[in-house]
Write a protein that binds this DNA or RNA. Sequence first.
DNA 1: ATGAAAGCGCTAACAA
DNA 2: TTGTTAGCGCTTTCAT
Lengths: 353, 353
Amino acid sequence: MAKGVTLRDVALLAGVSSRTVSNVVNGYAPVSEATRARVQQAVDELGYRPNVLARNLAAGRSGQIAVVVPYLDTPYFAELLQGIIRAARVQGYNVLIDQTDGDAEHEKMFLSRGSQQLLFDGVIFSPLGLAQSDLAARDPALPLVVLGERVSDGSFDHIGIDDVTASREATEHLLGLGRRRVAAIGDQPYRTGEAAQLRTRGFRLAHERAGIPVREELIISTPRFNRSDGATAMAHLLDLEEPPDAVFCYSDLVALGAMHTLAARGLRVPEDVAIVGYDDIEDGRYSNPSVTTVSPDKRMIAETAVERLLKRIGSPAPVPGREIRAPHQLITRASTIGQERQPDREHQNVHHG
Amino acid sequence: MAKGVTLRDVALLAGVSSRTVSNVVNGYAPVSEATRARVQQAVDELGYRPNVLARNLAAGRSGQIAVVVPYLDTPYFAELLQGIIRAARVQGYNVLIDQTDGDAEHEKMFLSRGSQQLLFDGVIFSPLGLAQSDLAARDPALPLVVLGERVSDGSFDHIGIDDVTASREATEHLLGLGRRRVAAIGDQPYRTGEAAQLRTRGFRLAHERAGIPVREELIISTPRFNRSDGATAMAHLLDLEEPPDAVFCYSDLVALGAMHTLAARGLRVPEDVAIVGYDDIEDGRYSNPSVTTVSPDKRMIAETAVERLLKRIGSPAPVPGREIRAPHQLITRASTIGQERQPDREHQNVHHG
DNA sequence: ATGAAAGCGCTAACAA
DNA sequence: TTGTTAGCGCTTTCAT
């Protein structure tokens, strides 16, 4: 299986000790230029490649980080993951991906087991089923970076956009268009629905500031943030006596699902109902119509998450947890402002948030 | 960091040798019921967890498999990955995910390096940039399962659907609807475009059998299979003197992109142009209209891939490579047959392929 | 600046 | 059935 060229082979050929070879390979410590060259040549000649497993065992680390997300096939996470994998690889780290399906037990397991087993050195975690308290109860030695809406308790880093502000802006955009019966799809008024609740707060805030009363019957709860939830909720809204003339959806998938129902009922977007989504996934750019959306800076989130996690891993002393706000924008597209320019072109107006 | 309860600690407490503990933990070999119980108790008492790294180093394996895909954020791959991760986890294997962006060099690297380093024990590979010849030139000791359209040369397993047949059926569906100017978007008439070429073959075959001439100007090549390719190609088709009345798209993303352009131009699907896609990604089920598509059995593909790979990994003697055909279906939806039933329901007619 | 040698925690060949 | 022990390939402390 393995080629089997070991450090010792190199050492023998170069006529030095394995210690020196190790130093050369890792770029450690003082090695004279002469020996370094000799060792390097032996390495090349033998085609030596360090055995990662052995290295990690000796070093007491795994060289891997875990990324735990609720769903892998959700475009938002897929896009985020891509960025994380890239950033980690640059630092010589491998990424272990795990999908929890939002199951709290599964998520909890990840915060305890695994680090002991030296399977990974740290975790980037996007919790769904887990409440804030579970997060606090974790193995405190496990370097952790949390994505999404939980708030840091000081023992880990948290990266996320300002959901309340973003949601307020999205709703204000709708109200600014003259819509007065604005609905919200995606509220989750229970223990683990923090993300949703923040968005609902922004939704209410926009109404408050505009002096327009919130119509409670237009706030729809959904179990998840996917297409079918959006489709179902929209159908419900349309069956009301006074259906909405705009909808703020808590994810682009929800928006896509809602638009599906609207089209099926023969309603036009945005003429009859304007739609705003959340996440800025690629799907929303090519849907009919394309979706106005809250766009978090995913790249920044991914890179910062990796950077912070590696910092934690590398530091012997506990690193104080930081709250990190990622920037976001409201990108207006056809689902609220209609076809404005050349349809085949990329058309988006950006409001900085 | 690690709790530090080792095999020896357990052995000491149980009053047996580490060998015996190892046997108990791994369920190996003969252990008397009495000692087994004693050891188990010691394990529980100490909260012992085997150190995976050490185990793998000693056993000469990594306990991980790599999955190499061109793009992570492509829904088709994301959905497939999910199945692979699940299946692998059940067998106690971790999954390392890598994205190549279709870069041939990157892909090639994966076939040589890494196995030596004991980073992974085998690879499930979905090549894009890589030609058949590159595949043959790999490290023959690396257990390999290839997904997609390359054909096995006997040294690895290959799993894929029958692209020619699937494409023929998709095209026949369009012709059967009475469409006579059927276009194809996604051909790739160059070295590494095997997948695309098979689909074009099916496209032609359907025309042949129906006695309808293929209009060469309606076969459009695209660099990739994504939305923007579809959007651009569709725009080109619509600018022809005689635009098509139906399009067979080589992926659902292409179909979605094409539909975006159609909507922008004010054309109706399927009345003006009928659309068939490929892959059956979730997006296509909630798009407006929903997309008729070739649906590969992703679950079967994922599970079989893992099963075959682990079989290879576990076998000391080389396992002869197999060509495995996964089943597929043509799922007809609104993009070809219009809104048939209740719009909020799942509506799909299945043709077994 | 470099060498010698003791592990990292586990598996498995060899004995008993 | 169970114990002894020699590694797996590397890092790293302690010498030199």
